[in-house]
Amino acid sequence: MAKRLLLILMLFVIADAYFFQAFTTIIHTPFLHKIYWYLDVLLLIGVFTLIFLRQQGKDIQRLAAGLVTSFLIVFIPKLPAFPILLAEDLVRLLQGFPPRSIYISEFVLALALLIVLIIVFGLTRGRHLYRVREEVLSFPDLPDAFDGFKITQISDIHSGSLSDVYGVRKGIALANAQDSDLLLFTGDLVNNKAAEMESWISDFTSLKAPFGKFSVLGNHDYGDYTHWDSAELKASNLIRLKEIHREMGFKLLMNESIAIQKNGASIALIGVENWGKGGFHQYGDLSKATSDLATDSFNILMSHDPSHWDHVTLDHEKHVHLTLAGHTHGMQFGIELFGFKWSPIQYFYEQWAGLYQKKGKYLYVNRGFGYHGLKGRIGIWPEITVITLKKSIS
């Protein structure tokens, strides 16, 4: 992590130095030049302050959210300037280094302004720009009664970050409009505390599905990322959070499975507690959750963190046909256009958004309903997933 942070800071300094050249080519006011560097210095001081406070065990979530937003606005628009101005320098080198082209510098500044506008849109409108993503998955051993069975998945509500009631209700209405048979929530109901969800209970209670609503816990639901005055308070918070799931009409699955029955046939829905790589708690117990399942049952797993799929699920003795996860949010920042997708989160998680297939098994990673850290979404929009199960001819 330290090496990655150092690399990002080095890239920041280099890109900033190049962008400043374009800035001074167009803007000749010394006072504005000083303001430019003052803002950069303040941002770097904030980064090092954040690192120091984290090492001291302080609550840094608000500071981190503000810094992430500031870093995006200050740094990301400057990044495209680096290759453009570097290419110009190669041409200038052959020409004896004449002054920079005003036109290229104007283009770089205009591009940066456009990127700033995109970021501002993501921080305001993007947080509730819900997208329905549909997949049709075929299985030869799917019970005939479940041919055409529809599942709606939402994930990562992060109620402690939500503020726009009408925006949230738009997402809930969109989820209900899919008319799915089953509704599944794959964890992170809150940021830290159950109290964050109290005012949203009635809204999320309105989610409907004829075959029921089921859920699992995510890493944020355990209250591990905030200070508690006692272990008892932390434990009671988790108890209350479980009660909220029940009050909203969700059956919370804690390392257990349940049969979904239709016309005399059934499929197994499995839910495990959070299990994650890289320092995240590994409370999930897939063996316990599947201990009572028949070897030939059709199995769908809810597991918040997609890393559980690679590290545990793929090679588990019980065949899990489909795993539904969330957790990554697609980092709430990236590009998804015409089938191409990119986000910095892909350097941390191999499976980070959308559908994946290995060894005859599927994983779907939902991009999240809410947001956390970054107060919005840029390019990676909030998601409602609809998966239709189909019977294929073997």
Rank of each mutant, 00 (worst) to 15 (best):
R246K: 14
V68P: 09
I267S: 04
Y225Q: 07
T186L: 02
F211I: 00
S199Y: 11
G264H: 10
F48A: 02
A15H: 11
H281F: 14
Q351N: 11
W352Y: 12
A209Y: 08
D40V: 12
I73R: 09
K34M: 15
L5N: 08
F107D: 11
K251R: 13
G223L: 12
S307P: 06
W342T: 05
G284K: 00
S343E: 03
I84C: 00
G376K: 00
K3M: 14
L117K: 08
D181L: 04
H321D: 14
V365C: 06
F146N: 05
L324Q: 00
W37I: 01
P77H: 13
I267Y: 03
V168P: 05
D59Q: 15
L286A: 06
N192G: 05
H372Q: 07
Y349T: 02
V165T: 14
W381I: 08
F338T: 08
S287Q: 13
L44H: 15
R127T: 01
H311A: 10
N192A: 15
G249D: 10
S105F: 12
Y36A: 05
Y103M: 13
L142S: 04
G187E: 04
S105I: 10
V132F: 02
T152S: 13
D147T: 10
F185I: 00
L374F: 10
I84R: 05
R377D: 00
P210R: 09
T328I: 02
L137K: 02
F48Y: 09
A145C: 12
V132R: 01
L94V: 07
G66C: 13
W342V: 05
L32P: 06
E196W: 05
F52G: 09
H227T: 15
A110K: 15
S159K: 04
S343P: 06
W342Q: 08
S236G: 13
I14R: 07
M197C: 09
A231S: 10
E135D: 11
Q346F: 06
W309I: 04
K375M: 10
R240Y: 13
Q56C: 10
K341E: 11
D147Q: 09
A15Q: 08
A259S: 13
F204A: 09
L123M: 13
F185G: 00
A87C: 12
E198M: 12
L142H: 07
F369E: 01
L43Y: 09
G271V: 00
A177H: 06
A209I: 11
T313P: 05
A268F: 06
K318C: 02
A194V: 09
I260M: 06
L85K: 11
L363T: 02
A15F: 09
H304V: 01
F338R: 15
A22D: 05
A265W: 10
A175P: 01
S155H: 07
G66A: 14
A64S: 10
I118K: 15
G122S: 03
Y371M: 04
L253N: 00
Q56D: 07
K375E: 11
L42T: 13
Y166F: 14
P80E: 04
R131P: 03
I118C: 12
F149D: 01
P140K: 05
F97W: 15
L301E: 01
G160A: 03
P306F: 00
Y349E: 01
A235Y: 12
V386I: 14
V91W: 06
